[in-house]
């Protein structure tokens, strides 16, 4: 049952990822990307990480893609831009096949399967997935977390400084 669901979602994810590049219209590309993100959220749910799924939808599909669509609407690019750059399709295809081979190699070699980690299904069931992530972020990896937040703050300040007009 879960395997069928996985393959169905995977087909949708790959098809929509393909159409992200293939669509002429930037808005359609962006929407296909949203579909891919939704499929990823389904994968997170299947991996017993509902928190990650919700955040995936909220942040990627709900915030970042909305902003991208906003910019596309404002710029009103039309069909001309994408028809000019078609050679990227082949390069992207070759690159993704290469990444697929590398990922396949690591999975086969048993270095990235995740079965060896300390977080197991039993732990998630007994402790709660959200609690585990919260503990990892705010206790175990507090310093990297704070560094990342300062980095984001710097980016925000930079954006404000760059876009500020002289008064």
């Amino acid at each position: 049952m879960q395997a069928i669901l996985f393959y169905l979602t995977a087909v949708v994810a790959i098809l929509s990822a393909f159409f992200v590049m293939k669509c002429r219209n930037p808005i359609n590309s962006a929407l296909n990307l949203v579909t891919t993100f939704l499929c990823l959220a389904v994968f997170y749910v299947m991996l017993e990480s509902p928190f990650m799924a919700a955040v995936q939808i909220m942040v990627y599909a709900g915030a970042i893609m909305v902003l991208i669509i906003f910019v596309i609407m404002l710029l009103n690019l039309g069909l001309t831009v994408k028809t000019r750059y078609t050679h990227g399709l082949a390069a992207g295809g070759i690159l993704s096949v290469m990444v697929l081979f590398v990922a396949n190699y690591f999975t086969r070699a048993g270095e990235a399967t995740g079965t060896g980690g300390s977080v197991t299904s039993e732990l998630i069931a007994s402790y709660g997935h959200t609690e585990l992530i919260g503990r990892a972020m705010f206790v175990d990896f507090l310093l990297p977390f704070e560094i990342a937040s300062i980095l984001l703050l710097v980016a925000i300040v930079g954006a404000v400084v760059l876009s500020k007009r002289k008064v």
Binding site: P50, F51, A61, G62, V66, T130
Partner: peptide, 25 residues
């Protein structure tokens, strides 16, 4: 009863933007 119910609500309410945005565009 999802244990991430609040996030589910926030996620869907941010997806609700699409109907309006795409309809207008």
């Amino acid at each position: 009863d999802l244990n991430v119910g609040v996030l589910y609500f926030l996620g869907l309410s941010s997806l609700a933007v699409y109907g309006m945005a795409l309809g207008g565009w």
